[in-house]
Design a protein around this nucleic acid. Structure first.
Length: 106
DNA sequence: CGCAGTCTAGCAC
DNA sequence: GTGCTAGACTGCG
């Protein structure tokens, strides 16, 4: 079980309609390297919106920045926002509305 | 906005 | 195998 897989596994536990943060994932994985978490997602074998390990797909789009702000990369943000919105999460100006209520603590 | 702290993956030697 | 660079981050000044 590599670091990335551990992160993905935790990420997979986030239910639909909820979100989590890089910070939370990192701490849940027992590290403080928040960047490494993002790196794990970035280097995923499947894609941006759904990382994957083995045969499972991980909803990477449910992972956001620390303040509920959609931290991330250039264009995928928009798609992520759309996906999240489809799951019932309201996005306003690249920021999660009611972030604290939607935040899923792992 | 910019700098420093932390960790993993990828590439070079 | 060791070393350096880059990166979906965070916190502080």
């Amino acid at each position: 079980m590599s670091f990335s897989e551990r992160i993905w596994q935790l990420c997979r536990k986030v239910p639909k309609g909820k979100v989590t943060t890089y910070k939370l994932l990192a701490e849940a994985a027992g590290t403080k390297a928040y960047r490494a978490v993002g790196n794990a997602m970035n280097k995923n074998p499947n894609g941006l919106l759904s990382c994957g390990y083995g045969r499972k797909m991980v909803p990477c789009h449910r992972v956001v920045g620390s303040n509920g702000h959609l931290h991330g990369f250039a264009h995928g943000l928009k798609k992520k926002a759309e996906l999240l919105r489809k799951e019932g999460i309201r996005i306003k100006n690249n920021r999660i509305v009611d972030f604290e209520k939607l935040l899923h603590r792992v």
